[in-house]
Simulated assay, not measured.
Amino acid sequence: MERTGTILRGRGFEPVEGRIVIDDDGRIEAIEETSVDGSDIILPAFVNAHTHIGDSIAKEAGRGLSLEELVAPPDGLKHRLLRQASRDELVGAMERSLQFMRAGGTAACLDFREGGVEGVEMLEAAADGLEIDALSFARGSIDAMRAGDGFGASGANDAEFGEERAATREAGKPFGIHAGEVDASDIHPALDLEPEFLVHVVHPESDHLERIAEQQVPIAVCPRSNLVTDVGLSPYAELNERTTLALGTDNVMLNSPSMFREMEFLAKLSDLPADEILRMATVNGAEIAGLEYGLVEPGRKARLVVLDGDSHNLAGARDPVRAVVRRAGVDDVREVVLEA
């Protein structure tokens, strides 16, 4: 199997005209530079580094409510709506969000999964047959973490999480935790847990930045969500100078799980270069989750997005990386290749 076009190769996304050869095991066997017909742009499929797709039943609910009123357990609007919904309603809504994500080039999402073991099982049911890696960073119990792919803690001000952290180490699974979303008070306690990654980090102070750099803990940032909930925006350039950033879309209740929209939004409100934002949307999230894709290079799993470079939206673009990050959308997707 092969795909041809302008290939955004390697960690630097160097545009190369040629073909990608995919072997029978669904891995990239070779990238061959050669003149080809057509104007397709080929890039790695996206990894959405932070989602809450369980609230797919509540899209655009809660206008005018604060972050706490929207999502704080146990009585935030989201949790009340989740309790009122049936299992079939929840699974069906999550499945539709996953289908949307897949159509938009997302190969995986790191979902902070409510509902304990049953919540993990519901996400598995929603993802069944969709070829998307919907990873459960389970919340609520150690048993849920063991059933899922890791543990996703709400925040260090909510509980100590020491037992859960120890259990993830024993299980060999990653531990992620929200930190610094509303204020800085939970950042140091979160870092004390030595997590595999933090989420948000909107309000770091200088001592937090020093610890983040020292510990080299990656951060999943969610710009659109932070704007919608009015908590502020992370200091993206300062964080990027100190550690690895990945990109997430957060609650489906508040935002469509579109990595195209998230990239464009971040590109136009920050000074981060386009290639850095594309790494945040692909390989950086993949490496947090231990996935074998996220880049177009030999040996990687062939999880790719093929864009129509001659679409009305992309035709004439002089810089394919900037065009992908700042301009492209789901309507430009010709094919999503999820071979392995």
Rank of each mutant, 00 (worst) to 15 (best):
S258F: 07
A237K: 06
L266D: 11
F260D: 04
E262F: 09
F265W: 13
L304A: 10
M263T: 06
L291K: 11
A267D: 02
Y293N: 11
A237Y: 15
V306S: 13
V296M: 00
M280D: 03
A267S: 08
N255Y: 07
A246C: 09
R242H: 10
V306P: 13
M259F: 09
N240I: 08
V231C: 05
M280G: 03
E241T: 13
S256P: 13
P257D: 08
F265R: 00
A246H: 03
A237G: 12
S270T: 03
G285R: 03
L254N: 08
Y293T: 11
E238Q: 10
L247R: 02
R279N: 05
A281D: 04
V252D: 06
D275F: 03
R300H: 14
S256W: 15
A274N: 06
I288M: 11
V283D: 00
L239P: 06
V305W: 11
E241Q: 09
L291V: 13
A286D: 07
D275M: 08
T249E: 12
D275R: 07
Y236T: 05
L239I: 04
R242F: 14
K301W: 07
G248S: 07
V231T: 06
P257A: 03
I288P: 11
D271T: 10
T244F: 12
N255K: 15
T282Q: 00
K301S: 08
E262A: 14
A281F: 04
N240A: 12
K268Y: 09
L245S: 15
L295Y: 10
A267P: 12
N284V: 02
V252H: 05
L245H: 06
N251S: 09
E287K: 13
V296A: 00
I288G: 15
A281Y: 02
G285D: 04
V283P: 02
F265S: 05
E297C: 00
G299L: 10
R242W: 14
F260G: 07
N251I: 15
A281Q: 01
L266R: 07
L239G: 05
A302R: 14
L278K: 01
F265C: 13
G285P: 04
R279C: 03
N251A: 09
A286W: 09
T229G: 05
G285I: 04
T244M: 09
S258W: 12
E276F: 05
G294I: 13
R303M: 15
